[in-house]
């Protein structure tokens, strides 16, 4: 896989870092000259994934979240959000729209549905007790400006 550019960040699973995480990813992707809509889609998807880490993976503790972003050929962006939290027994159930394990906290159960809607592909690998890796891919519309 040809990687044109890459960055990674690690930060603590505090809710105050949700804004930091999506802004950092957006700032890195800006070099591809994305549209306002594309940046908004990416920020939303990253926000969902990071919130899952804060709310579910590290529910009773503070742990580390690692995000890596790769810029691939053809304006394709690959974002990997990894935690070492509780993991999920049933990934398919977790990904069902409107399913949430925490209805009392006003979680809408839409996190994965939003990621799927705002990105081209979403893949999830999770091991109970070990953690979860969410990989988002999105291809930007071709740019005419010099990349």
């Amino acid at each position: 896989m040809t990687v044109l550019n890459e960055m990674s960040i690690t930060f603590e699973s505090r809710s105050s870092n949700e804004a930091f995480a999506r802004s950092a990813v957006a700032a890195f992707v800006m070099q591809l000259d994305p549209t306002v809509g594309e940046i908004s889609d990416l920020k939303t998807a990253v926000s969902e994934a990071v919130t899952n880490c804060v709310v579910h993976a590290y529910r009773h503790s503070i742990g580390t979240i690692r995000i890596s972003v790769r810029l691939l050929p053809d304006y394709t962006i690959m974002i990997r959000i990894a935690d070492k939290g509780c993991g999920m027994e049933d990934v398919h159930k977790a990904m069902e729209p409107l399913y949430t394990s925490l209805p009392e906290e006003e979680r809408a159960g839409l996190g994965f549905a939003v990621m799927q809607s705002f990105c081209d592909s979403v893949s999830v690998r999770s091991t109970p007790g070990k953690g979860t890796v969410v990989t988002l891919k999105k291809r930007l519309s071709p740019r005419y400006a010099n990349g």
């Binding site: 999506r22 939303t44 926000s47 969902e48 919130t51 006003e106 809408a108 839409l110 996190g111 939003v114």
Partner: peptide, 13 residues
């Protein structure tokens, strides 16, 4: 300026 699905939870609540 920005809203993720937490905003939906907020509205539903």
């Amino acid at each position: 300026e920005f809203m993720d699905s937490s905003g939906i939870g907020l509205i539903m609540g």
